[in-house]
Nucleic acid binder design. Structure first.
Lengths: 196, 196
DNA sequence: GCATTTAGTGAACGTGACGTTCACTATTGA
DNA sequence: TCAATAGTGAACGTCACGTTCACTAAATGC
């Protein structure tokens, strides 16, 4: 019955509360200024409960990002027009990046070292895979309709638009605005994948 | 007379020593673990001398990166073959990224917020411009030789290979290896820019 | 329904880096 | 030669880290 003032949460309940607090803090202060103490306070939890679960801020944020990722799987239906679909995909990526997920990615990138941990790779894939699947779906529809070259299904090509969006976000501090997105699509992706 | 044990350096001499210490620290421990105290100690300088010049680690690292950037302007001569030249450009970018410059970029990205400071934009341009110039040179030669479409000179297209290299570096923790670079070139850039 | 085990709380602690300050000293150049 | 300038090094208060511990609430077993 989802009590609004639970006496003392444990296990998954508590974990969820900590994740939510983490994501809110990420949105508000960003990764660089995220404090374990603030997260604990916000979740009305003890710091010890955080450190019992995750050894560091980086681990906590990765876990929170994974939590958010798995909780946010929305379906994507193609319209039949590749150009239109790509713009929608790009918009979806931009929306993600402007929330806590974007800050989580930024933090994750900032702490990556030459030898990434397995957990890093796992989170990277978790971010990349859904995006690739959606773009692949769009390209496949285009190939079937005879407007897209089959070579567009190469993973590097499928990842091209997401990579450009992410690169812009990381190096500019905010998601690519629509004008920029349009250039990615019209000057790069469409010319590359279109038949003729 | 460049004494090897200078009694007490001041001004630009000291500043250079601090930059070098900063870049060495960046290479060794990365941005996330860079300590102002370590930089000061390495440069045999007082912490106060650092804080007198730059208000924070982020500013110091940006300044050090700018220093390195302006000190590293090597000429690039085209070979006449676009594919070959692009591979050389990519290799050059990878080399840069595996040194202190790469760590500086990573730190810079990690601390970017929604409203970047002017200094951020300045450094971004400093990194981007030389790369773009080199790629543009290659493309211009190709256009002149009739092997490259004139549309390749669009800034977004010129920046494509550098962006893909940087994106890989940021999200994987190390510069793109040659196999990956080859895919960027052969699956994306060359098909996009080639005249038939 | 009571006792036991498990898990979370909250305060306290030592540590390390932050960014600042200050008395002192070396360098500069008037 | 001396005053002005600039750097040093130690000390300081502060903050967040990550850990510990006595205490208490919830879950589990009998």
């Amino acid at each position: 019955m989802t009590d609004s003032t639970p006496g003392r949460r444990r296990g998954d309940d508590l974990e969820r509360a900590i994740f939510e607090a983490t994501l809110e803090e990420l949105s508000e202060v960003g990764y660089a200024n995220l404090r374990m103490e603030s997260v604990a306070a916000r979740a009305r939890a003890g710091k010890a409960s955080l450190y019992k679960r995750w050894p560091s801020r980086a681990h906590l944020v990765r876990a929170a990002a994974r939590h958010l990722g798995s909780a946010t799987q929305t379906a994507f239906e193609t319209t039949g027009d590749v150009r239109t679909d790509l713009a929608r995909v790009a918009q979806r990526i931009a929306d993600f990046e402007s929330g806590p997920y974007g800050e989580a990615i930024r933090g994750f990138v900032g702490e990556l070292r030459a030898v990434p941990e397995d957990e890093d790779e796992e989170l990277r894939l978790q971010i990349e895979r859904p995006r690739s699947l959606v773009v692949a779906k769009v390209f496949e529809a285009g190939v079937a309709a005879g407007t897209v070259r089959p070579e567009a299904l190469e993973p590097r090509v499928v990842n091209l638009l997401p990579a450009l969006m992410t690169h812009y976000f990381l190096t500019r501090g905010r998601p690519a605005p629509p004008e920029v997105t349009d250039e990615f699509i019209d000057l790069i992706v469409m010319p590359l994948i279109s038949l003729d």
